[in-house]
Amino acid sequence: MGSYSTNELRSGLKVMLDGEPCSILENEFVKPGKGQAFNRVKLRNLFSGRVWERTFKSGEKLDGADVMDQDMEYLYTDGEFWFFMDPQSFEQVQADKAAVGETAKWLKEQETYEVTLFNGAPISITPPNFIELEITETDPGLKGDTAQGGSKPATLSTGAVVRVPLFIDQGEIIRIDTRTAEYVSRAKG
């Protein structure tokens, strides 16, 4: 993988820190006119998603991390693992609960997800920003109520619960913003 000097750490670069893969968010060069230079680095731990702040002496080296993001299709779950397929090579990978995390509630078969692979194994799954899902359970829709601001909970086919407008009915397919878990619109038929 090679290694990178602190001066080469650019936003988005993946490096190993304390044995865990991290993505560089920010790198600030701090140097007094006379005296040792430092790099104040912000990194996201790709296992935990936590943001770390570390300071290094300038010129120190960090090992690169074998991390890549790949678009893959979600296939199914056996309850323990979630299976994804590379649509080009048809190769499959299995992601565990830690890797899938919160994304589990947005997993729909045949949908494409960004799978982050570390040494070839999935460590996190990012859903598309917008996804269309069927409502499996909600109170009956209120006819004609398209202007009022009210909302009600609705359970989706993936198990996620979101707030939807009162006029939406069970069985309808709606568009959700996965970043905010908010209803956007009815899916265009």
Partner: peptide, 16 residues
């Protein structure tokens, strides 16, 4: 500060 500087001198740490 979170800084590993095993060979750091007194001045290095004061500068940090």
């Amino acid at each position: 500060i979170q800084l590993e500087m095993p060979d750091g001198t007194l001045d290095d740490w004061l500068n940090a």
